[in-house]
Amino acid sequence: MIVLRQLINGLHVGSIYALIALGYTMVYGIVKLINFAHGDIIMVGSYVAMVLMAQAGLPFWAAMAASMALCGILGVTMERVAYKPLRSLPRINSLITAIGVSLLLQNTSQLIFSPNPQPFPTAFKVPPVSIGGLDIGFITLFTIVVSVGLMLALQAFVRATKMGKAMRAVSEDMGAAQLMGINVNTTVSVTFAIGSVLAAIGAVLYSSAYPSIAPTMGSLPGLKAFIAAVLGGIGVLPGAMLGGFIMGVAESLTKGFISSQLADAVVYGILIVVLLVKPSGILGRRTNEKV
C-alpha cells in the first residue's frame, strides 16, 4: 500500500518534470541550446496566473489560457532578442545569454512581487478520487492525465503536420532545411512558443499542486526537468516523458524507502550511470559524425 502511495507521489512529480522537460527537449532538439531560462518561464507563468486569479478574479481556465499566451509570447521574444542574433556563434554564447535572461526574469519578478513566497489560489475544490481503497488527489490525477495527453498530442503534431515536419528537418540540419525552402526562423520561433506554452501549463499545474510561489521557484524544477530530458534522451519527445517519470518515481521511492536526504544524490547517480551505459539517454539515438 505504501509502495503504491509512493509510486503515485512519484508519478505526480514526474509528470510535472515531464511537461517541463518536453519544452527543454524540443528547444534542444532544434537549436541545440540548453535554455536555462526555461525554468523561469514556469515562474512567470505561475505569477501571471496567480495575479489574474487572485487579483483580477478570473476563473482558472481563463487565467491558464492567458498565462499560456503570455508565456508563448515571452518565449518567442526571448528567442528573437537574445538567442537568434547568436545562432551562428558557438553554442556556449547562447548558453550565457540564457543564463542572463534567467537572472533577468528572476530579479525582475523579485522587484515586482518581492522575494516572499505567495499563495497560489486553489483551482480545484474536488475531493480525492478513490481507486481501490487508495485516495488520490484530484490534482495528481489531473496532472498525470494532462501531461501524458499533451505529450501524445505533441508527438502527433511533430509527426503529422507540416510544421512538425519542418521542425524535424531543422533539427537534422538547419542549413539544408533552409535550402529546401523551410523558414527556419519561423520554425524555431514556433518551437520556442510551444515549449513556453507547455511550460505555462506545467507552471499552473505545478503551482496548483505546490501552492507557494516565489521568484526563484523555477530554478529547481527547471534543472530537474533538464536532467529528465537528458535521462530520457534529449531531443526525443517520449524520452522526456519517460525521463520525467523515472526521476519522479526514483525520487519518491528513495525518499520513501532509502533516505529522504539522499534523494537528489540517487537521481543524479541514476543519470550518470545511464549516461555511462547509454550516452544518448534511454530512448536517444546515437549519431555518428561523418568523417
Binding site: 537574445a82 542574433p85 545569454t97 542572463g100 537572472l103 533577468l104 528572476q106 530579479n107
Partner: peptide, 16 residues
C-alpha cells in the same frame, strides 16, 4: 536591490 538586474542586463548586452 537592482544590482542583479543591472548585472543580468550587462551580461546579455555583452554577449549580444
Amino acid at each position: 536591490d537592482y544590482r542583479m538586474l543591472v548585472y543580468s542586463l550587462l551580461l546579455i548586452m555583452m554577449m549580444l
